[in-house]
Design a binder for these strands. Structure first.
Length: 891
RNA sequence: GGACGCUUAGCUCAGUUGGUUCAGAGCAUCGCCCUUACAAGGCGGGGGUCAUAGGUUCGAAUCCUAUAGCGUCCACCA
């Protein structure tokens, strides 16, 4: 009877997905234009690194954005989701350097210009991979607006921002102790350092006090830095060492004489109470050095090896080799007092993966305090909302303790700092003025002070985040004003991970205030981290990160999207496994098959819009499902607006599977297969209406399959689903009475099914059903429904029904159901069943009556609650009596 | 050291304002079914003193306090 070729039995996503993505693009549905008639809805993508490929984290993040933008599009907003990629200065440079190394080349050999050529080639080759993958996922980005953080326009934005901040005095150059990554040989920001606990040692060293035979003992985790010591410090009030303050020690190995100083910083309780001070290689010692005017002795080369400031035997050694050699040298000298095991936390370079060095160098910094002020206020005042809100505290803490930001990097791939230095003219005049750097958006032709053309540009590039912090304004036309910029900025929602709250979120807020005078976005949704089932982070080295493309090949993009949305509670980490995607896949298949049913069974049935149906012709089930649909719509809207996507997905899932498929479709089968034309039309029209409502609600989550099914079910004047109107909940369809009546019928059917199942009645065998009920009106008018779904032959509903012999009993509400079973009945089984029911009801009854016997409860609880409990007690007593009576018939 | 989060069925997790519908879902498990959309399915069953101890309340998975375990972030001790 069914034509298998018309619609397959199993949903096959592959060609459906490709076909629809192409069609949507051709129709220009993704592109947003300035349109004063409509309210804009904007998102900017957190630009993935050009070097990257799609991870499960990206799937989660971008699915959420697509869900948001698709719903907004259906709600009639002018949508614009700007995509793009990040040049990822240090990450990309590291990869290109590795690639060169494989070819036997290296960046210093080929020089800056040549290196950048390689980098651009690399970018052109790999940069589009993740973009392709996002398309595969179904992301409805405005691809005509795709940007790259180093394209020409964006470059100009970054440089302009630098110049403006310099002119405001917020960007300055200074010599400071910075986090130095010896692997990439560049400074990095505080945020790019990750601390890890490491098993190390604490070495106690004896430093001889000059002109005395005494020693002071200092403890250190880094003995090699003793080569750069320029003092020993003690606490000023420490009685043990008071007499030594102002004296000096002679450093072993270098024989340098350094003073013993007093400073509150020293904790007398720790170690020996004496601290060696290495101002050029430790942040605390740096402060000490400044306070006490000590020498800053830099002992390291940029690659982490020891330089010429140390005795010859140590020169050129790597810092870790030097440590070993220093330890054995002092041991031989007899000044190694003691060695202890010691766990300490060491900062590692996020990209380089090696321990960072506090390293004295000249860098560019951005003063942050002033920039932070409006940004703090915006979040505090809820002008920007965080979901979940507990991130506010983290944000505020960082913002109120904000440090100046080291923005220069000793790298080549990135935005080269727009600063030039004059090397003086031939005459050699105006040397003084030439010391001022020339900071300019345009490349200067000559020195404004002396006219020399011998200018040299700063070698360094900017931190990646000093470009991506402009993303919301930079992807449009900034620094140029335009209608577009004003129309699409601020954006509505930002979806990102909490791991970049400081790197990116906080800085974007500061940038938009600084350069555009307003917030960059109104809401920030922080996703959780995606982990494996053991709770471990996804990582390449663990091999536990699944390939999203492989998953999409196997299950379809919709299944992947829906599966992950179903398990992504707001702000909670997500334990991912393929099983989740299977749930998505199964649901898509369910959806496919219920549509298949409608398409195949409705071939010759006329469909009418529900609004044109005569209300009086609607069946109880029709009213019920329409009421449920409308409740679902408003529940979906509610959880959507609260950014609770997992809840939203779950509601659609439950309604579709349980209400629509398991009940409504089963219920209407008798009408559809029957011979009354009018009934067919009504049931089928309602079913199609509900189905289309489901497709609309689900479209943001599963765009491909819903569009495909929509096309097959839609009537001519309807548009493509992607731009169809989002469903409105029609309050008029909400029908409490029908819901109550239908629920009663569901209970009767389930009750009968349970008994049949427990009594092992084969499904092929139908039985009669007697219902004793004072109020059987609603049941009687739905006889057919009960008969079909409960496999009943004769249905007798009367207040005075006699209990047939050899029957099983079920109590539903106030009704007694009797199922005559003839010889199939197992009396012992039925006895056990009933007595279990009796004792369980007995237990619940006594708990309710205890409650009602409690004076305080009756006095203090709201009236409705007490009334409810009273009614409950009454019903329970009645039911208990019925059960007991029926039990007695079995004796 | 500071901040935040988590602990509910064998597993993975929902549970928004305390009170019918609060103890739920999926997977797993057990029983019966290839019933003309779907076995990636249908029907039915079993399974939890909601981490622990106190407290608030007539009433707590839900609010408060403490404890334990797990996790994340920030600061950092030479």
């Amino acid at each position: 009877m069914f034509f298998e070729d018309k619609i397959s039995k199993v949903y096959d996503p592959t060609q459906v997905e490709q076909r629809w993505y192409k069609k949507w693009l051709e129709q220009g549905y993704f592109h947003g234009k300035v349109n004063p008639e409509r309210k804009p809805y904007t998102i900017v993508i957190p630009p993935p690194n050009v070097t990257g490929s799609l991870t499960i984290g990206h799937v989660l993040n971008n699915t959420i954005q697509d869900v948001l933008i698709r719903r907004a599009r259906m709600q009639g907003r002018e949508t614009c989701w700007v995509p793009g990629t990040d040049h990822a200065s240090i990450a990309t440079e590291t990869m290109v350097t590795k690639m060169l190394a494989q070819k036997g080349s290296d960046k210093n050999k080929i020089g800056r210009e040549e290196f950048l050529k390689h980098a651009w080639t690399w970018k052109d080759e790999y940069g589009s991979l993740i973009i392709k993958q996002l398309k595969r996922l179904g992301c409805s980005c405005d691809w005509e607006r795709e940007r790259f953080t180093m394209d020409d326009g964006y470059y100009r934005a970054v440089i302009t921002a630098f110049v403006q901040l310099y002119e405001r005095g917020l960007i300055y150059r200074g010599t400071r102790l910075v986090n130095w990554c010896p692997a990439t040989q560049s400074a990095i920001s505080d945020e790019e350092v990750n601390y890890r606990e490491v098993e190390g040692k604490l070495w106690y060293l004896k430093y001889p006090v000059t002109q005395s035979d005494q020693f002071v003992i200092v403890a250190t985790t880094r003995p090699e830095t003793m080569l750069g010591d320029s003092a020993v410090a003690v606490h000023p009030k420490d009685e043990r060492f008071k007499h030594l303050i102002g004296e000096s020690v002679k450093l072993p190995l270098t024989d340098r004489i350094v003073p013993i100083i007093a400073d509150d910083f020293v904790d007398p309780e720790f170690g020996s109470g004496c601290v060696k001070v290495t101002p050029a290689h430790d942040p605390n010692d740096f402060q000490l050095g400044k306070r006490h005017n000590l020498d800053f002795i830099n002992i390291l080369n940029p690659d982490g090896s020891l330089n010429n400031s140390v005795p010859e035997t140590f020169r050129g050694l790597d810092r870790f080799d030097a440590r070993k050699k220093v330890v054995s040298a002092i041991d031989r000298k007899g000044v190694l007092e003691n060695t202890e095991d010691y766990t300490t936390s060491i900062g590692y370079s996020e990209r380089g993966g090696v321990p960072v060095e506090p390293y004295l160098s000249e860098q560019w910094f951005m003063a942050m305090e002033e920039l932070a002020k409006p940004a703090i206020e915006a979040v505090r005042s809820q002008q920007i909302k965080f979901y979940p809100s507990h991130w506010i505290k983290t944000y505020e803490h960082w913002m109120t303790h904000i440090q100046d930001w080291c923005i220069s990097r000793q790298l080549w791939w990135g935005h080269r700092i727009p600063v030039w230095y004059c090397r003086g003219n031939d005459v050699g005049q105006c040397q003084l003025e030439c010391k001022e750097p020339i900071v300019s958006v345009e490349t200067p032709e000559s020195c404004p002070a002396c006219g020399s053309k011998d200018l040299i540009q700063d070698h360094d590039v900017l931190d990646t985040w000093a470009s991506s912090w402009l993303w919301p304004i930079g992807v449009h036309t900034w620094p140029d004003e335009s209608d577009e910029l004003d129309y699409f900025h601020p954006t509505d929602d930002l979806v990102t991970g909490p791991d970049i709250i400081f790197f990116w979120v906080a800085r974007m807020i500061m940038a938009s205030f600084e350069f555009k005078g307003e917030v960059p976005f109104r809401n920030v949704y922080f996703t959780g981290m995606v982990r494996d089932m053991k709770g471990r982070k996804m990582s390449k080295s663990l091999g536990n990160s699944p390939d999203p493309i492989g998953l999409m090949d196997k299950y379809g993009a919709d299944a992947v999207r829906f599966g992950i949305m179903l398990i992504a509670p707001q702000g909670q980490d997500i334990l991912f496994s393929e099983e989740r995607v299977e749930i998505g896949r199964n649901f898509m298949n369910k959806l496919w098959n219920v549509s298949r049913f409608l398409l195949l069974s409705g071939e010759e049935i006329e469909v009418r819009p529900v609004s044109e149906l005569n209300m009086d012709d609607l069946d109880l089930a029709d009213r019920w499902i329409l009421s449920r649909l409308n409740r679902t719509i408003s529940a979906v809207d509610e959880s959507f607006d609260a950014y609770r996507f997992n809840e939203t997905a779950k509601k659609i899932y439950d309604f579709t599977w349980s209400d629509f498929c398991d009940w409504y479709i089963e219920v209407i089968k008798s009408r559809l297969y029957g011979s009354i034309k009018a009934e067919k039309i009504i049931a089928y029209s309602v079913a199609c209406h509900v189905m289309k409502g489901i497709l609309k609600l689900l479209h943001p989550f599963a765009p491909f399959i819903t569009e495909e099914l929509w096309q097959r079910l839609k009537i001519d004047e309807e548009r493509d689903l992607i731009v169809e109107a989002w469903p409105e909940d029609t309050a008029a369809w909400i029908d409490n009475i029908s819901e109550g009546n239908f629920c009663e019928i569901q209970e009767v059917i389930t009750g009968v099914r349970t008994v049949r199942s427990e009594m092992n009645i084969p499904p092929g065998i139908r039985s009669d059903l007697f219902i004793r009920s004072d109020d059987g009106q609603s049941l009687r008018s739905n006889e057919r429904l009960i008969k079909d779904l409960a496999k009943v032959n004769d249905l007798i509903i009367r207040p005075d029904v006699e209990r047939p012999s050899k029957s099983a009993t079920v109590i539903v509400g106030k009704k007694e159901l009797f199922i005559p079973m003839g010889d199939l009945i197992d009396i012992e089984n039925e006895k056990r069943r009933l007595s279990e029911k009796i004792s369980s009801l007995d237990r619940r009854l006594s708990s309710v009556s205890a409650k009602l016997n409690n004076h305080d409860f009756v006095e203090r609880a709201p009236k409705e609650v007490v009334e409810r409990e009273r009614k409950k007690l009454g019903d329970m007593k009645e039911n208990l009596a019925k059960l007991k009576q029926n039990f007695s018939f079995l004796e």
